[in-house]
Amino acid sequence: MTQPSDADLIAFVVREARMLDEHRFEEWLTLFAEDGKYWMPLEWGQTDPVLTGSLMYEDPLLLRIRVERLKGNRTFSQKPKSRCHHVLQTPTVDSRDDAVGDYHLYTPFHYVETRQDEQTLYAGWARHHLVLRDGALRIKLKRVDLVNCDAAFGNIQLFM
């Protein structure tokens, strides 16, 4: 892929959510750039992930720990396992820079996570910063802002 179309970019975001809903977590990890990050801010309009707290701010190593853990025999909070479900608004391509292969997308979503008899609905906005690496789109940053980012939550165990 030398120059992804807007449709290619949107398809990437939709495909990413489907991987999560289908528990294809190993495959999902491959979508991240080596220096990629998954960020869930704690504060409304947060700008700093390092000197302000976050719900998640994870590099591929930390994400890999999560994915491995989900498979473990002694992962007690996943016995039984959680399931998740994304509903995405059509992603918007906010900006594109084909010269360097740099793209920003904005995707409002509803996300449901369930385990046993509990079903919890979350709503928020995903912002994807995608980059072209060796001809393939990769996630440099997936930022997930929950509409109630500062609320008290129970366990959030999968990925939005």
């Binding site: 719900l55 998640m56 701010y57 720990i65 999560r66 007690f76 008290a152 366990n155 959030i156």
Partner: peptide, 14 residues
């Protein structure tokens, strides 16, 4: 705090 005490913490979950 994020890795151990958050509602998204893999330590907190268990």
């Amino acid at each position: 705090n994020r890795l151990i005490n958050a509602p998204t913490s893999v330590v907190g979950h268990d």
